[in-house]
Amino acid sequence: MDRRESLKWMMAVLATVPSWNVAAGGNASKGYGTDPDLVKRYRMGDLWPLTFDATQKAAAAALCSVIIPAYALSKSAAQLDVHVFIDEWVSAPYPRHVEDRKLIVEGLAWLDEESGQRFKKPFAKLALAEQHKICDDICWPAKAKAELAKAARFFARFRDLTADGYYSTPEGMKELGFTGNKASVNFDGPPVSALKKAGLI
């Protein structure tokens, strides 16, 4: 991104979400109700319209991958579309989600604003080391400077949502070592190796 583009982008950010104080609009759609189909496989965006525009989506995907990056054979959160799950989450019409929507949408705008001020590019275009520099200021809520308290709250919530989205995918479940959800004839209890590990034998 050259300087002109970068300025254009900065102006766009400033024009849309200039500060924390702008409320992210509510989502007027209804929830899934008290009698949804429980056996159907749902896709993100099936039930209510998603929120993120291209800028927000790019920032969310980039932050997802900083929080849960790819390494060895394991995929990153963005590779598993966790940013789309976060979009689904903040787009839901329930009270907790409406709260998260404000925090996340404004937080993503802050992230780009901060990136622009420090590195003249949106967060998604920064080098990994630059992304880390920004995250390092806000990733430990207890250590964050007072003026970054809200950004730290955003990061903590975004991290929780990234973990929720990532570890509920088939790949994420495998990554954790979940081996259940399979029918079997017997339940034998823990293997000897597990009992040894816990000091039980």
Partner: peptide, 13 residues
């Protein structure tokens, strides 16, 4: 992962 919101509770459920 097959559920809306990854199965998290909501006022509806």
């Amino acid at each position: 992962g097959d559920a809306p919101l990854r199965g998290a509770g909501t006022p509806d459920k």
